[in-house]
Design a protein around this nucleic acid. Sequence first.
DNA 1: AACAGTAACGAACACGTTTTCGTAACTGTG
DNA 2: CACAGTTACGAAAACGTGTTCGTTACTGTT
Lengths: 338, 338
Amino acid sequence: MVTIKDISKRCGFSTSTVSKALNNSLEIGQETTAIIRKTALEMGYLPNTAARSLKTNRSNNLGVLFIDEMQSGLSHEYFSGVINSFKVEAERLGYDITFISHNIGNMQMSYYDHSVYRKCDGVVIACVDFSDPAVVELIHSEIPTVTIDHIFNDCTAILSDNLTGAKDLVHHIYEYGHRKIAFIHGENTSVTKRRLAGFHKACDALGIKVPDEYIKAARYHDPRSSGLATRELLNLPDPPTCIMYPDDFSFIGGMNEIEKHSLTIPDDISVVGYDGIYLSQVLRPKLSTFKQNTEALGKEAAAHLVESIVDKKTYLPKQIWIAGELWIGDSVKNLNFE
Amino acid sequence: MVTIKDISKRCGFSTSTVSKALNNSLEIGQETTAIIRKTALEMGYLPNTAARSLKTNRSNNLGVLFIDEMQSGLSHEYFSGVINSFKVEAERLGYDITFISHNIGNMQMSYYDHSVYRKCDGVVIACVDFSDPAVVELIHSEIPTVTIDHIFNDCTAILSDNLTGAKDLVHHIYEYGHRKIAFIHGENTSVTKRRLAGFHKACDALGIKVPDEYIKAARYHDPRSSGLATRELLNLPDPPTCIMYPDDFSFIGGMNEIEKHSLTIPDDISVVGYDGIYLSQVLRPKLSTFKQNTEALGKEAAAHLVESIVDKKTYLPKQIWIAGELWIGDSVKNLNFE
DNA sequence: AACAGTAACGAACACGTTTTCGTAACTGTG
DNA sequence: CACAGTTACGAAAACGTGTTCGTTACTGTT
C-alpha cells in the first residue's frame, strides 16, 4: 500500500503539501502539483478511504434502503431498474453504495444506526413501508435522505408521475372507443392513490361513469390476485370491454383467466398493464402499458441526494416528478373501425 | 458521536481496557467487561468503522462484482436472487456489501483497484465476462474471491449443477414418452457447455439419437432469438415433440411462435424451461422447468467467502456444486396414455 | 530601503481505534 | 517468606489522512 508519506519521500515535498496537491488545493503551486500528481500516478497511489473518512467524517458512500423481505425488492424489475440507475449515477459522481439493513452480525440495529455505523453520507429510500417508525427515524435524522415514490415533509422525493400515467392510459383506451373500463389496482399505498385519482379524473373529464364493481383491489406483482379480480369482472352481467391491471406482471394472472373463459385479447377483451417491463414487450399481443422511467428516477435520486450532501446548508427539499411514456401495443382493440 | 474515550471517562477504565472489553478479549475481567459493555449500550456507542478499518486493515465489507451493462444483471431474476441471498447471509455474518465497478467519479479504476480502494475483505464475482483481463487480475490478486458459475484455478467456485439439471429434464421428458427432443441453448459459456454435456449424456444413456438440426443456438434472456429458433424447429420436415429452452423467460418467444403456428402447449408440442423464475409458475400451462437454488448459491458464496477471509492462511479453494430441483408443470404432454 | 501583502510550503496535531508492552496486584508453591 | 507465575489493567504508539497555523521568500508600493 503506497501512502502519501511514500510520495512525500519520493519527491521531497512534505506530506501536507502532497495531501493538498492531491486535493487540488490552490495553496500549492501549479508545478509542484503537477510533479506530485505525476509521481502519485506512477506509484499507483490509492487514497486510504478509512483514514480519509476518519478525518473528514465523510465516506463517499451512499446507503440504499429497500425492503428485502420475500426478496421482492431486487427481483421486481421496476425497483431493480431504479436501483441500478441510481448506482450508475452515484458511481459517476464518485460515490459507492452500500445496502442498509437492520441486522448486521448478531447486532440488531436500526436503519439509522446502520447508516451511521457505515458513515453513509446519504441514504435513498425506496420500496419500504413508509409508516415504519424505523424508516421515519432515519428520514427525520440529520442524515440527508431522498425517498422514491413517497412524499415526506422536509425530504426530497423522486416520484413517478402515476396520476398522469393512469390518465394517459384511460385517454388512450377512450380514444379507441371504449366506455366500459375496469381498473384493478394494487394495495393501498400513495402510488395506488395517485393512480386511482388519475383514473377517476380522466373518467370524469371524459364523461365516463364508472360503476363501483369495475374497481377491484388486488396486489402488485401478484398474478393470482389479479386473476381472481379478472374472473369477477368477466362474470359481471355487464362486463367491461377493457381492464387496466396493477402492473404488467400481474396481467399474467388476468391473461390466464381470460384464456380460461375462451376469450382472446384484444378481440374479445382489451387490457393494459403498467410499468413497461421487458416482459410486456415480448408478449403477443404486445401489451399496451405505461412505461415508468426507471432510469430517470434512479439518476435523479442520486443526483439530488448528492446535491443535498454537498450543499447541506443551503439545500432545500424538493419534489421531482418523473414523467413516463404511454407505450401503445396491440392489447387494446380499436372499436372505431367496426 | 460517542467514542471509546467517552466510555472510558464514564466508567473509569482506560481506553485500552474499553477497547479490549468490547472486543471480548479474555484479558479483561468478567466484571469489568460487563460494566463496560453495559455503559457502552447505555450511551448508544457505535464503533467507528473508519478508525477500526484504518487500524486493522479490515473493513467488514464484501465486494460484489457483476456486469451492469444493459442493466441485465440486477433485472435477471436468477442473479438478483443469488445476490439477494448473498446479501442476507453476508449481513448475518457481520458484513456489508458494496458494488464493485470500474469507474468511480472521473477516475477510471480496475476492479482490483476499486476493491482495494474500498478495502473489501473479499469479493464475489458473478455474471461477468470471465475472460476479461480485469476480472482475471482481481481473481489472481491477494484479495479473497469466490466465483459463481465459473471455475478458476485457486479460487473457490459456487456452481449451479447445470449438468444434472439438463439431464433431469431430459429424463423427465423421456419418461413422458418423448423421443424427439430439441434443445435451444444459450450463448457459449461454461454454463451452456455443462447443460449441453448433460443433455447429450442423458440422450446417449437413453439411446436417443439427436439429429444436429435439433440443437439450436440462441441467447439467454432473449425471447426473440428463442422465437426464431423455435420457428426453425417447427418448420423441420420431422419436427421435435418437445423443445427445451435456454431459460424460462426466453420461452416467451417460443410461446408466441408456437401460437402463431396455431399449435397449443402441451397438446401439439411440449416445452420445458430452465431457472424456475416466478413467471414460470404463473403461466398457464404451468411451465415444467429446472429450479436453480439461487438461495443456496448466494448463501454458500457468502459463507465460503467469509471463511476464506477468516482462515486466510489455511483455507483451500473448493468447488461447491449446488443441486437444483425438477419442477414438473403442465407443459410436457404425457404420451404414455395415448 | 522599508514595508505590507501574498504565494508556497512544512510542522504538528487530531480523527478513533487496536495492539504491544509494561506493571502492579494477586495466587499458589516450596 | 521468597519466588515464579498469572491475572487485570494502563500508557503509548501507530494506522494514513486533512487541516490549522507558522514561516519563509518573493512581489510591488511608497
